[in-house]
């Protein structure tokens, strides 16, 4: 589904990603962990097509297409979804209208008829139930004045509405209370099929109890320095990153 090959990216001349390799197959869940500032959000942004980051080397292939050739909107319409670590507040843009245009622009791209108001509403009601999000939230301006947890839940709701093939969740668990965490995880699990995949960025092994990953990777200083199964996450929870940092820093030295 997604093949990342020796990906290098920099911002303002500063190299952040220094050769990432990752292969995600349909139906798989991959978790990415790693210390603050190691490049996890940068990787997510580069995948989604943020132009502030300059890709200086490597290749990105998504469903057989060269991602680097596609605009952010076309990537989304091809089935890539990024749940932002910091969802943006957009005053004056109604959440519902925004989601409706996103859904219909995608349908148009795929050669489908736009959903009419009734179909859209039915669809929305169903997905609202799935992520237990309140109607009142959706009638407000996009993320404006939403609490941290509400923003995250709104991200998952949008994911549910857009039904992506690959969803990248950037610390969607941060700032969620226990109940919200369970709801978000349930949402993900219910959307999971044998055909779609998830890339979950998290700092907490706790989330991985709910969303059980097939692989866990550790990103450090712009590289994936360890990969393993969910046991790796458990080990990190106990030992912290120090032992990996020490090993890697020694290798690099």
């Amino acid at each position: 589904m997604l093949k990342i090959n020796n990906l290098q990216a920099s911002i303002e001349e500063k190299e952040i990603l220094k050769g990432i390799n990752l292969d995600i197959k349909p139906g798989e869940i991959h978790a990415i962990m790693g210390p603050n500032g190691s490049g996890k959000s940068t990787l997510a942004s580069v995948l989604a097509g943020r132009s502030d980051y300059e890709v200086t080397g490597g290749t990105l292939e998504f469903m057989g297409k060269d991602l680097l050739e596609l605009s952010p909107e076309d990537r989304a319409k091809e089935g890539l979804f990024l749940a932002f670590q910091y969802p943006v507040e957009i005053p004056g843009v109604s959440t519902t209208n925004f989601i409706k245009s996103a859904v219909n622009e995608k349908r148009k791209y795929l050669g489908l008829e736009p959903l009419d108001a009734a179909q859209f509403l039915r669809n929305m009601k169903e997905k609202m139930k799935l992520v237990e999000i309140d109607q009142s939230l959706l009638s407000r301006s996009l993320n404006e004045g939403f609490s941290g947890g509400e923003k995250k839940r709104n991200e998952i709701f949008q994911m549910a509405m857009l039904e992506p093939k690959l969803a990248i969740l950037d610390e969607t668990d941060s700032g969620l209370d226990i109940d919200a965490l369970r709801i978000v995880a349930n949402g993900v699990n219910q959307l999971r099929t044998k055909d779609n995949s998830f890339l979950v960025v998290t700092h907490y092994q706790r989330l991985l109890d709910y969303i059980v990953p097939d692989f866990v990777h550790v990103l450090y200083k712009g590289r994936i320095v360890r990969s393993g199964t969910k046991e790796l996450a458990k080990e990190l929870e106990v030992k912290g990153y120090d032992f990996i940092k020490a090993e890697v820093d020694q290798e690099l030295a």
């Binding site: 097509g49 909107e73 990537r75 622009e105």
Partner: peptide, 10 residues
Amino acid sequence: FYLRARGISA
């Protein structure tokens, strides 16, 4: 970028 990342054209 947030809007575009949801598939809305620039």
